[in-house]
Write a protein that binds this DNA or RNA. Sequence first.
DNA 1: GGGAACTTACTGACAGCGTAGTAACCTCCG
DNA 2: CGGAGGTTACTACGCTGTCAGTAAGTTCCC
Lengths: 222, 222
Amino acid sequence: MTDDRRTPRARPETLARRAEILRAATATFAARGYGKGPLTEIAEQVGMTHAGVLHHFGSKDRLLLEVLRHRDETDVEHLPDRRVPDGIELLRHLVRTALANERRPGIVQAFAVLSAESVTDDHPARPFFTERYRTLRGQVRAALEVVCAERGVDAPATVDRAAAAVLAAMDGLQVQWLLAPDEVELAETSAFAIEAVLTAVLDSRPSPLREESDAAGDAERP
Amino acid sequence: MTDDRRTPRARPETLARRAEILRAATATFAARGYGKGPLTEIAEQVGMTHAGVLHHFGSKDRLLLEVLRHRDETDVEHLPDRRVPDGIELLRHLVRTALANERRPGIVQAFAVLSAESVTDDHPARPFFTERYRTLRGQVRAALEVVCAERGVDAPATVDRAAAAVLAAMDGLQVQWLLAPDEVELAETSAFAIEAVLTAVLDSRPSPLREESDAAGDAERP
DNA sequence: GGGAACTTACTGACAGCGTAGTAACCTCCG
DNA sequence: CGGAGGTTACTACGCTGTCAGTAAGTTCCC
């Protein structure tokens, strides 16, 4: 039984209001960053004062964490089985996500700004993003290993790097795309990067970077 | 001609002082971002008041632009010929840069934070980063085309995407590395990504991502 | 059903701090 | 002297968070 007696709140109307606030907060944090995004601007978007926002979320830090959590939840919501796929389907899912992201620059900007901002001193979202990347790297690495196994290829030692590289390319492309949407194709370029990494994992051959002067290249470690 | 209206006469002692301020500003912007990095903290590091900093740079915005410009200058300074190399040497240069960056997390953090922050509304560094990425993409694309030509390969239409992907991977890896330096190898992973992209450009074959499901069914597990 | 007891969802005022920029002044050094 | 390199003092904000108060629910008991 759900023991709701102790917490008689959570009216549907209230939940909708909070969702509104979360949406507004996402917009403001995207446009101005967390540090420079004032509560008053968020409150104004939903027609209340900043004190009203604080009533719902207690503090600005908690609001930020709710924004991030809420986004993760709704992202997984419309997924088959509510689970992230595995193997090559995960990689395809990443490409589809990039494609979907082209239609929602606000979300992309929020995450691009907040993830980078989170590396600053004592940022409230730092644990969130640290853990998030850890999880995502694990999922991509697992997917790559599954693909390798399916093709009878020994997963090389580089799968860890490959996983990090896939996520890094997607993130970096978002920043470039936000700065110059007419010059950078977000989805197509993300797909290209993922394909390149996947190919590199599947057949690990000597790199063209190290060919040429390989005798000197091996000894080189400045 | 050099129109240094701001500095009619520049004593060497003064130039050194300004360099100090620029270094301090880099540290503060790295640690707290531009928007949240106060002039007082910068001033304190060099032993003066915030008004003294403003005396030298006029405004906080101008200080930021000087920081960015100064970093670009000193980066090119210790380069042979003071010019960015071309062809495969540019790609090797990128890897060497990533290696050097592992020893200066402050610089890395400053650029990671500021580049992402620059996409926010009316950010003073936005034109700088927009132009910076445009230039860098052009340089990497040219380098890739040179490598293709050297090997008698027609540069594929994907060179543009490849150039963006290389820079994106490097940037994205910096964020992951800053968040978890023990889990992400900055230089090695950057090299991996660059190699993967280079290989993809050099022999463009059908992507494993698009192969659909013809090889499905075999259980070739060990 | 109706009213008392309580909770929720706010508002408006304000404290308290941090911040960029300005203006006037001081103080060396060439 | 005259100006470069500051300082102190001050203005004018902008921001988060607290507090008391109010109006509108909700719950419970008879």
